[in-house]
């Protein structure tokens, strides 16, 4: 719901910004923050070129290391603050995997934890002013979602053989309805990676664009800019929430898909 409002706001502001380009005071480019640029020089972007994406992905790695390696360095029975957070994150995701996908999903816990930590760190790093939000890019979220989709599908067939197809055959429904339901289930199955990736990327992009538009207004309105500044404050708080919730949602959906692969029978 909030996400839809955000997207609507972003579109509105975007249109405003486009139509307002004749006015030099309102030259707002909310999407400039997402431009992928080479870190060094101004050359073409090859697949190996170190870009701002590389920088902020690297910082996400460092953040993960800081939390899970530096934070737990003491190995204390009575944990320090950092170790507490690391243990909390570990327990949180482990319990989620166990509760949602079942005990036999625990071997896949490291990858799910990797995805969660990566998304949550990237989302929060993206909220640092002038930073670059890697998770706002559909290329990133689509790879994450497709990796989940492909591995879950392959896992489903490896674990259950052709029995995995019973996921689409709703045996609890009346026989006449089953083929129709099968088509619907099949379509919804293939829509999963799309919604999985766009939910994350769209939320982060929309939030950052709205922040930027408000910032543009704040720069253009002079004394009255107190209003957009409060707007930024409110939206920023919301974005802090969204940053965590979207990582949580992505992870729990991964667990749900994994459960379907391990236990396809309705």
């Amino acid at each position: 719901m909030v996400a839809y409002i955000l997207v609507a706001l972003a579109v509105l502001m975007f249109v405003l910004a486009l139509t307002g380009t004749e006015n030099p005071g309102l030259a707002i480019h909310p999407m400039d923050q997402f431009v992928v640029k080479p870190l060094f020089g101004d050359g073409p972007i090859h697949w190996y070129t170190p870009t701002n994406v590389t920088l902020w992905l690297g910082l996400a790695i460092l953040a993960v290391i800081a939390l899970m390696v530096m934070g737990t360095r003491g190995r204390a029975v009575i944990p320090s603050r950092g170790q507490s957070i690391a243990e909390l994150a570990y327990g949180f995701i482990r319990k989620m995997v166990e509760d949602v996908a079942g005990r036999d999903a625990l071997p896949y816990f490291p990858y799910i934890f990797t995805v969660f930590l990566f998304i949550v760190m990237s989302n929060f790093l993206g909220l640092i002013p002038t930073s670059f939000a890697t998770t706002s890019h559909i290329a990133v979220t689509a790879v994450l979602a497709l990796a989940v989709f492909l591995s879950v599908t392959i896992l489903g067939f490896v674990k259950n053989g052709a029995g995995f197809l019973s996921l689409f055959w709703v045996s609890s429904a009346p026989l006449a309805l089953r083929p129709i339901l099968a088509v619907i289930e099949l379509i919804s199955y293939f829509v999963r990676p799309v919604s999985h990736s766009i939910r994350l990327g769209g939320n982060i992009m929309a939030g950052h664009a709205v922040l930027k538009v408000f910032a543009g207004f704040a720069g253009a309105l002079g004394l009255a800019s107190i209003a957009p500044i409060f707007g930024i404050l409110a939206i920023y708080g919301l974005e802090l929430l969204v940053a965590f919730i979207q990582a949580y949602v992505f992870t729990i959906l991964t667990c749900v898909y994994l459960r379907d692969a391990l236990h396809p029978h309705h």
């Binding site: 090859h46 070129t49 870009t51 992905l57 934890f113 990133v140």
Partner: peptide, 21 residues
């Protein structure tokens, strides 16, 4: 045009985080 770049570095990142964890 920036997709290969992003995907490459993302895969590297995920592998590194996975290994560290």
């Amino acid at each position: 045009s920036t997709f290969p770049n992003q995907i490459f570095w993302l895969v590297v990142t995920l592998i590194l985080i996975y290994l560290v964890l």
